[in-house]
């Protein structure tokens, strides 16, 4: 098949997506083409729609079709709590669990020496401004339990230390649901013991 052939181009584009190899890309392309073209049309409409309407929320950095996003503009949300997360995937994960009803702040990554991400590359200053201008009483740092994630959390804690009345919390570390002790790594067991609760 020639490289400038539209089918080849479609396969190439699909192949560039995360988690899709050459074989999967060919299968998806064939499925879209042979499925009476409806799948292909729906997909192209959906992609066009997204391309034209997607916006970054001016408050929390979430992606949505409106700005401020649905979460920031919702009246049902607890406006006094902000959950700080690294990226939109984390927001989707928390929203899936339906366990949190407050607002979010997406940093756009975490501090990383190897990837050259410094404090200026993250929206930490905007978080500080939000806390200054909104009536926030609690900030939840929901960052990954890695060295980089926790050092970002400590950096933000330092930055927010000027707000004496503000409660700063982080997510618990420890045993996952369904986790068997025998299969856990040493670090998780150590952290779980350190964070144990009385029952």
């Amino acid at each position: 098949m020639q490289n400038n052939n539209p089918i080849s181009q479609l396969i190439k584009i699909l192949n560039a997506l995360p988690g899709i190899g050459g074989r999967s890309a060919r299968r998806i392309a064939l499925h879209l083409i042979t499925n009476n073209n409806t799948g292909l049309l729906q997909l192209s409409d959906s992609l066009k729609n997204i391309h034209e309407n997607i916006k970054k929320c001016e408050i929390c950095n979430n992606i949505d079709t409106i700005s401020p996003c649905t979460i920031c503009s919702s009246e049902k949300r607890d406006k006094k709590t902000i959950c700080v997360i690294a990226d939109v995937m984390d927001l989707w994960a928390i929203e899936r669990s339906s366990s949190y009803k407050g607002l979010y702040h997406i940093l756009g990554g975490i501090l990383s020496a190897i990837d050259g991400v410094g404090p200026d590359d993250l929206s930490i200053d905007r978080l500080v401004n939000r806390i200054k201008s909104e009536e926030v009483t609690e900030v939840i740092l929901a960052l990954s339990a890695t060295v980089d994630g926790q050092s970002t959390a400590h950096y933000i804690t330092d930055k927010l230390s000027e707000f004496k009345e503000l409660k700063i919390t982080r997510l618990a570390h420890g045993m996952p649901i369904g986790g068997e002790l025998d299969y856990l790594d040493d670090g998780t067991i150590i952290t779980a013991f350190k964070s144990r609760l009385s029952i």
Binding site: A145, T146, V147, Q150, S151, H154, T157, D158, H173, D185, D186, G187, T188, I190, T191, K194
Partner: peptide
Amino acid sequence: TIASLLMDNP
């Protein structure tokens, strides 16, 4: 493991 012991100590 070293890092997990130090997570709470900035």
